[in-house]
Design a binder for these strands. Structure first.
Length: 116
DNA sequence: CGAATGACCAAGC
DNA sequence: GGCTTGGCCATTC
């Protein structure tokens, strides 16, 4: 059945807070397998409900392709809806990357009323 | 079990 | 800054 790696990936992505993002390589590194970034992409292909899959982007801060770009479009809209700004089709990872470590708070707070 | 696949990444040009 | 090449790894055929 589903490999344990997928479960670990999903469990980790589930902890990503609103307004923050992580890269595939980062997720892999946090799982103890820094070289398995590609496998993380496979796990995301079948992410169950409850997993903020849209908060996972590639190392360049852009949205990876999955064959058709429709999913990528919804991902962008979802991220923008959480207060993440896109500059030239990509986001500033230095600013939005999730540290997974308490204490390193976001430089920008999430303000829904500001989006409208 | 070998070969192909892919929501990746770093290095080279 | 963008495009190409090679490498990595888990999943699927």
């Amino acid at each position: 059945m589903t490999a344990p790696l997928e479960k670990r990936v999903h469990a980790l992505v589930r902890r990503v807070p609103v307004g923050r993002v992580v890269t595939y390589g980062q997720v892999a590194a946090l799982l103890g397998a820094p070289r398995s970034a590609r496998a993380v992409g496979h796990a995301m292909r079948v992410c169950p409900p409850g997993v903020p899959w849209h908060r996972v982007v590639n190392g360049r801060g852009t949205i990876s392709r999955r064959g058709d770009g429709s999913g990528a479009l919804s991902q962008r809209l979802l991220l923008e809806g959480e207060g993440i700004r896109f500059s030239r089709g990509r986001i500033n990872l230095e600013r939005y990357r999730w540290s997974s470590r308490p204490g390193s708070g976001p430089v920008r707070r999430f303000r829904p009323e500001l989006l409208k």
